[in-house]
Simulated scan of single mutants.
Amino acid sequence: MNKRAVTALIADDEAPMRDLLRARLAAAWPELSIVAEAANGVEAVELGELHGPDIAFLDIRMPGLSGIEAAKRLYARSHIVFATAYDQYALDAFEQGALDYLLKPVSPERMATTCARIRKRLQARAGDAPAPQDIGQQLARLTTLLEHQGKPSRPNYLRWIQAQVGTSLRMISTREVLYFQSDEKYTRVQTAGGEFLIRKTLKELLDELDPDEFWRVHRSTLVRVDAISEVVRDARGRHMLRLRNHAGEVEVSRNHTYLFQQM
């Protein structure tokens, strides 16, 4: 007789993060069945109560209800795994207790470790054994930490770019991007490993990217500032940017030379 498949819920308000988490889980635990995905804390609770998943992967900061508040409604039935970009929670609150966590963006190695740990804990809870009593106390402590932390002062800038590559979807961290360059139809995303085409316009990117990390250096070009290794003048007197891990140069238009006033 076949054993019942282990089931899971994924909740994150960013679709690219849900896609990445699903892909990492498929690689680390192919037998795991994702029964539902939620875009906010309220949906997470509703879908969790409807499907009763064995595991709930919850982002900490979500609209409606936080992942911690959702976990308070779900932990009696589901093993809770928090996915968070806020490592202070992991360092201060997760290591001692029955909860698991993943730091975003999730690496394949970290996902494999977490899945192995979850398997052991699910086996320990076999036979409908009650959830450890300290989970409720740990969630209360996390709620207090979240309240003291307050809301992030920085806007929620774009962190992932989705690029279609053949029949697959490539997830590109903005930290990988050297520059964006647009023409009339497409925007080229240049990374150290290659280039990709997306349909997002430069205007959309300007509204969504952190202006401290990406500068517009030409009407058609955005450059990640910390990818710039050198600014030089060519034979025609134009400012040209040399980028780390990239052989070509990027032109700075005359209207944007003020960004490099020391030259």
Rank of each mutant, 00 (worst) to 15 (best):
L209G: 08
L178Q: 11
T191R: 06
G127N: 05
D87G: 07
E147R: 14
V250G: 05
A90K: 01
Q123M: 12
V177Q: 07
V232D: 11
D92N: 13
A129F: 03
R117A: 15
Q137R: 14
L169N: 09
P105A: 09
N245R: 15
K203E: 15
A71K: 07
A163S: 05
R154N: 00
M240V: 02
E195H: 14
V250E: 06
A44H: 05
G48T: 09
E184S: 15
A93I: 15
E195G: 13
W215Q: 04
A129L: 14
L122G: 01
Y89H: 08
Q137V: 15
A163G: 02
M240S: 03
N2D: 14
A8V: 12
G41P: 04
E195Y: 13
K151F: 14
M111I: 02
I80R: 00
D13N: 13
P152V: 11
Y89G: 02
G41A: 08
V35N: 01
L47M: 10
C115Q: 00
E176L: 02
E69V: 13
I135S: 05
G48H: 04
L102T: 03
V42N: 00
W29S: 04
S229W: 14
L243T: 10
D234R: 13
V6P: 00
E204L: 13
H239P: 08
P132I: 10
E95G: 15
A28P: 09
Y75C: 07
A192P: 01
V42Q: 07
A247G: 11
N40F: 09
V106L: 03
E249C: 00
R61F: 12
K3C: 01
W215I: 04
G52N: 06
K185Y: 12
L178R: 09
V6A: 07
G237E: 01
S220N: 15
F214Y: 05
S66A: 12
S253F: 00
E147I: 13
R159T: 13
D54C: 03
M1F: 04
R216W: 04
P152E: 05
R224W: 11
I34K: 02
L58F: 04
R125Q: 03
R170N: 03
R121A: 11
F82V: 06
V106A: 01
E208L: 12
V250M: 03
Q262A: 15
L158C: 12
T167F: 14
K151I: 15
T7V: 03
M17S: 11
A8C: 12
T257E: 10
A70D: 07
A192N: 01
A126H: 01
L58S: 03
